[in-house]
Design a protein around this nucleic acid. Structure first.
Lengths: 224, 224
DNA sequence: GGACTTTAATCAAACGATTGATTAATATTT
DNA sequence: AAATATTAATCAATCGTTTGATTAAAGTCC
């Protein structure tokens, strides 16, 4: 509370940019664009208000930079999962494993990555007001991952990867995972905890895994 | 843009309150608490800024009233689904129908009710900052519905209604439904549409229905 | 290599605009 | 007339932005 002196002991000149982005990401995600003031951000970053205008042209420029930073985080997180031109595994069992693997990595990012604590609240705010940031996040991350899952899912069930049914089914699988993050407060409270424990996260993964398996059995049974 | 005269032609005196709440709900949901100014809200409601202080004591009082209004909307929507002391149906098939019925009603509210256009964005903003509004929404609506679904689910699968596994599984079913609303922009865009059509909503319901059926088959098979 | 200039970066201070809140006066209803 | 409701006008505070000064490092010239 009572910081009479500078927060940061000594800031390397080049680090002012990233420190501003990091703190802005946190405060934008926490309070929204209007709720976070430039002075508050600058204080948190241990610098002067004018630095925002100097480095980013203004508050909106800083917000844009935050969007790009988030897009980069997600690209890194999803880049690990996306082998560019992989050959489709033949067996349904292999396809199922690939699908589970992708969702497992998403869960790892969502629940165990410190980056996601900055990225997720920010993205949620952006979803309400789709602007440049949402655009970058959607076309750079969401759509590619979803498309890839559709191919795998259709391969396992025999449907058309670009059919509405496959698209929606894949969304329902991603959606339940994302909801555990979005609605984490409601979920953890219902479980009687303050936050998720490691066991909780494992339990969540198992539930989703079971849902996927159950659905793939039905889908494969119905189609093949 | 250029309203030289009053926006509303003539406002019935008693309606100032509800009009303020309705417009505040819309603007709070759209821009957040800080983003929506009292003057903007008052203009949208066709009244004076001071009316907010007069009727609600201030901006935060208006926000509180919005939370209560949302809680009331949700209570109405869920009240239809909650027969107070229903006897548990015996057969698993009946239980499954009850579960599907509840989720179907939730979907109807989320996608077809004009109220949800006001309520959902507002709630989403509240989820980020759990305050009084979140408290009322959670304990008044979310928890009772979830608890009831847990009883039904456990009845159909033979598990413990208050076990973590059942709780999380029910959350996963609710979550996929909610995500279709929360992430509607991403979903509809992936489908190549501006907004959901009636057919889309039906398709979403079918997907969730299939997920539930698939999971209940597995769960019943594994437990019974 | 020493003296001067340029550039990048940060700062305190101040700008006009807008914020939520308040006031006193007016209008409306009972 | 009294109570309720709405208004225009004003308040201090805070907003994002801009300014001019200051510092230190990099570049330039003789």
């Amino acid at each position: 509370m009572d910081k009479t002196t500078k927060a940061a002991p000594a800031l390397s000149p080049e680090n002012t940019r990233e420190t501003l982005i990091r703190e802005a990401l946190r405060l934008f995600g926490d309070k929204g664009f209007d709720g976070a003031s430039t002075r508050e951000i600058a204080d948190a970053a241990g610098t002067n208000v004018a630095s925002i205008a100097y480095h980013f042209g203004g508050k909106s420029g800083l917000h844009r930079a935050c969007g790009e930073a988030v897009a980069k985080m997600l690209a890194n997180a999803s880049g690990q999962t996306a082998a560019p031109h992989e050959a489709l595994p033949i067996s349904s069992e292999q396809l199922r494993l690939r699908i589970s693997d992708i969702l497992k990595r998403m869960a790892a990012f969502l629940f165990s990555s410190p980056q996601s604590d900055l990225a997720v609240p920010f993205i949620l705010r952006e979803m309400a007001h789709p602007g440049e940031a949402f655009e970058a996040i959607y076309s750079g991350m969401m759509e590619p991952v979803h498309k890839r899952l559709c191919v795998l899912w259709a391969g396992a069930t025999g449907g058309d990867p670009e059919s509405d049914e496959v698209k929606l089914t894949v969304f329902s699988m991603i959606g339940q995972l994302l909801y555990f993050r979005i609605g984490a407060r409601a979920v953890s409270r219902r479980l009687g905890r303050e936050t998720f424990s490691e066991q909780d996260i494992t339990a969540i993964r198992n539930v989703i895994e079971s849902n996927i398996s159950a659905r793939l059995n039905i889908a494969a049974k119905g189609d093949a």
